[in-house]
């Protein structure tokens, strides 16, 4: 068992699973336009964020539109083992991953090739810090985000994360999904999710620390 409080969070975008969702699905299958109007504003921003993280800006919208159609085709067979939103994000992730593979075959989806993660070089062989963390001048989110160049640097770093690292980060930090749900959406093993998130967070940590020390942005250094 992992976290004991992982079920405390509502990760279904404000819509409870169960009877009301079953009724909604029924209306969607009947192509009731008001049902579309209800869910599109709720789900589309998350779908777009996920498509963007995995496949990039130029085809994110296309992937989202494709996913809606795929949802409509598959909805009659949807068994509600997950929430509708989780299932829909899984469709988006699948579509985005296959588009990514088709178009950028040389790049890695996960970015886990090297054995050492980010920051590994900051520890000695005994596991103690060899290059300890510096004390940050800008020590709160407010202070950090008020520095325009640093803000841009963080955005750039997020953008340059390997696709599944960026996707896992968004699902976790933005959507509050548990690691187990992220496994389900991205179709990645639990241990890989842990590594993806760990590397993504450390890349951002390092970008902020490097910027504060030097005034320069070094995304994914």
């Amino acid at each position: 068992m992992k976290g004991e409080n992982k079920n405390n969070k509502t990760s279904t975008g404000g819509m409870r699973q169960g009877a009301s969702e079953a009724a909604l699905i029924d209306r969607l299958i009947k192509q009731d336009e008001s049902a579309f109007r209800q869910i599109i504003p709720l789900y589309q921003p998350s779908m777009r964020a996920l498509a963007l993280a995995i496949a990039g800006d130029s085809i994110a919208d296309e992937i989202v539109q494709e996913a809606w159609l795929a949802m409509m085709r598959a909805l009659p067979a949807f068994e509600q083992r997950s929430s509708l939103k989780t299932w829909l994000l899984r469709i988006v992730a699948n579509e985005a991953k296959s588009r990514f593979r088709r178009e950028k075959r040389s790049c890695s989806l996960e970015g886990l090739e090297s054995d050492n993660g980010v920051m590994a070089e900051r520890y000695g062989s005994n596991g103690h810090w060899s290059l300890p963390p510096a004390r940050w001048e800008l020590a709160t989110p407010e202070a950090i985000l008020s520095e325009e160049e640093l803000k841009e640097c963080i955005e750039l770093t997020v953008k340059r994360l390997p696709p599944l690292q960026g996707a896992a980060l968004k699902l976790k930090e933005l959507e509050d999904y548990s690691s187990q749900e992220i496994c389900n959406i991205l179709d990645v093993s639990a241990s890989n999710i842990r590594v993806l998130l760990h590397r993504a967070r450390n890349s951002l940590y390092e970008a902020i620390e490097h910027f504060q020390a030097t005034g320069n942005c070094r995304p994914c250094g």
Partner: peptide, 29 residues
């Protein structure tokens, strides 16, 4: 500081809401 990093990113990643235009496009799609 990692906590500060995560909280900063959370704020930054906030997605813009779905615009009316995007909504209508998706419905007609």
């Amino acid at each position: 500081q990692l906590g500060v990093t995560i909280d900063s990113v959370k704020t930054l990643l906030e997605e813009p809401a779905c615009s009316d235009k995007a909504l209508e496009e998706t419905i007609s799609h």
